[in-house]
Amino acid sequence: MSEALLRLAGVHTHIGQYHILQGVDLTVPKGGLTVLLGRNGAGKTTTLRTIMGLWHASRGSVSFDGQDITRRATPDISCAGIAYVPENMGIFSDLTVRENLVLAARRGEPERARLDWIFGFFPALKKFWNQAAGTLSGGQKQMLAIARAIVEPRKLLLVDEPTKGLAPAIVQSLINAFRELKSTETTILLVEQNFNFVRSLGDSVAVMDDGRIVYSGPMAELAEDRHLQQRLLGLSLDAHQQRLP
């Protein structure tokens, strides 16, 4: 196992009166793609939001690249090298595709070479470059959300359920994009319910239930063990498996 880039130790998160994360221990190794699986309400989104500092852990610690980021503000966490693609994509509908990407490029204008690299796997973004992002289709918005996160190199990319509600053809283009991203130095933590989407992509996997990590290990191990899948993912496996083209 390679060196840990992100480590959550005994993280508890409360949202109002609700105790969502109940001692999450999660290690994301540097490089490759780690998948966080779990049924609805297991705490996957809360885990990502806690890492980003959008909700703060009430107990436990989050360390990234050797630094404690538990109490840091969201902009500081972002500047430390973590990019976030939320479940609702968080694109700025009133801004154009170009403006969305310009905003995400903190160093100034996005590099044209980098943009062309992104257009290589998301060509729709080039076609609708000056179009208001709100007019894009769901799949195109997801492409923009991911493009915005990678418009500059980041150490860690957090992506929350990118395939939710998308057509199989779009899902395939996302698979291609993640494969391309995996070839870079970016580490990816991907929250997903669609096991077929992530089984060929993931290097390691963690499964959440009731606010805790109930399994973590290599993806190959989980992908090969049908009984383990049934035990860990149960009904959600059948309910959320989406056939790919």
């Binding site: 503000a73 972002s78 939320p86 700025f92 509908s93 009133d94 801004l95 905003l103 903190r106």
Partner: peptide, 24 residues
């Protein structure tokens, strides 16, 4: 200007602007 973009984006989704690394 980038400040203008930040204002327009912040009007729409301030949380996401923070997640991009800006102190809103």
């Amino acid at each position: 200007t980038k400040i203008g973009l930040l204002i327009r984006a912040g009007v729409e989704n301030g949380e996401m602007v923070e997640a991009l690394g800006y102190r809103i």
